[in-house]
Lab assay of single mutants.
Amino acid sequence: MAAAAAAGAGPEMVRGQVFDVGPRYTNLSYIGEGAYGMVCSAYDNVNKVRVAIKKISPFEHQTYCQRTLREIKILLRFRHENIIGINDIIRAPTIEQMKDVYIVQDLMETDLYKLLKTQHLSNDHICYFLYQILRGLKYIHSANVLHRDLKPSNLLLNTTCDLKICDFGLARVADPDHDHTGFLTEYVATRWYRAPEIMLNSKGYTKSIDIWSVGCILAEMLSNRPIFPGKHYLDQLNHILGILGSPSQEDLNCIINLKARNYLLSLPHKNKVPWNRLFPNADSKALDLLDKMLTFNPHKRIEVEQALAHPYLEQYYDPSDEPIAEAPFKFDMELDDLPKEKLKELIFEETARFQPGYRS
């Protein structure tokens, strides 16, 4: 834990890192770190609560700039109880001085990944967590956004079992017609939660990839272990087919990539493993919904509104309290091709509203 900075004593240090967030945020305490930044909790002297502050230093890398800009653009436009918001952003007053960006968010005690390492969940908890994931996802999908990296560590939890989806750095506007060349190379989302079509096709992607990830998360809540822990690309596919069985001819016809289709045709026939054999203690309604989410063919996979209306979630289902976005989200430009200098300018502009004396 960093010592509390005395008023006016300059930035606090946390594990050798400068955290320049005073005077409003003090009493910093280390939480963890990701690929390009550290997260601390801090005391907000204005709202009198502890908050989470993520320090991001992305400006050396085009990919990190892209992810940072995506996350900020999306989260500043989203407003939903099951999606983490941005409360404040701290950065230098000029673009030349801006080396880091500090993002202030609600402090959540833990995440689903940490929880599943230590606790076996009751059916009631599984049901409530799944409902909140789908409630947040309904809003995301209504904005025409794909999260693309749903996994237990991106689901934040607090002691009252509130759940918030975080990390929109890989999110995209849904565009089933656009052929994202190089899709697989830039697709760094965790393999275990990846839909089979991501490994088999490169053309376009749809909201059904997020539903697949939610199915993987439900299976993990039922058993405290990942359902498809593939060691590499082909191993991942083999794990999936080992449980779902061989795809039907109709399902194979959806695979545009001939090499991928021929690979699947070359494999020995596998039978589907019954879900109640894998999860003998699970609620039968939970397994019915799991089956509809972990469907090989993305066109037959359940959609988020149908999933919310499934009998497993009937005690929570309330369409009048499951809000959607006001308007579909649009990125003005494809960020993939922009140089990091341009992305830095866009991050600077996007964060201006939090600067003292800002006038829109």
Results as ranks from 00 to 15, higher is better:
Y358T: 11
L278N: 07
S320R: 04
F59A: 02
G37T: 11
Y64T: 08
H239V: 10
Y139Q: 12
A260T: 12
H299D: 11
N262C: 01
L335W: 09
M221C: 05
A174I: 04
R194L: 12
H180V: 13
I86Q: 08
W275K: 11
Y139G: 11
G230K: 00
D44F: 09
D175F: 07
A282W: 01
K114C: 13
T181M: 07
I89Y: 03
D175S: 06
G215K: 13
Q355W: 07
H147W: 08
E303C: 08
N144Q: 12
D177I: 10
L343Q: 15
P280Y: 11
D175T: 03
E349Q: 03
L265T: 05
P339N: 12
G32D: 12
M199L: 15
E305A: 13
Q97S: 04
L264D: 04
P319T: 14
V304W: 07
A92I: 00
M13W: 12
H120A: 08
L200I: 09
R77P: 05
K114N: 15
L134Y: 06
D88Q: 07
D235P: 09
Y316L: 09
V273I: 02
D288Q: 07
I31D: 00
P356Y: 00
A260Y: 00
I56Y: 06
P328L: 13
L308I: 04
I140R: 10
K342Y: 06
E349K: 14
Y205G: 07
K344I: 08
F78Y: 15
T94C: 11
W192K: 10
I90A: 01
L75W: 01
D337F: 01
R24Q: 07
P356V: 00
R70N: 02
I256T: 03
Q62S: 03
R135C: 13
H141P: 13
Q97C: 08
N262M: 03
F348P: 02
N123Y: 15
K164H: 09
V49K: 05
S29C: 14
A327H: 01
L155E: 02
N144H: 06
G8Y: 11
Y205T: 10
D111T: 04
N87V: 01
D162S: 01
G215W: 03
R191A: 09
S29R: 15
S41H: 00
I90H: 01
I72N: 14
M221E: 05
S248G: 07
E350G: 01
R50V: 09
V51K: 05
S248F: 08
R15P: 12
K342W: 02
W275Q: 08
I83N: 11
P328W: 03
R24I: 04
L308R: 00
H120L: 15
A282H: 01
M108V: 04
S122W: 06
L157H: 07
D44T: 01
L76S: 01
R135V: 04
D251A: 13
A42R: 03
F168R: 05
K138Q: 13
Q17S: 04
K114G: 14
G37C: 07
R261E: 11
I72M: 13
S202R: 14
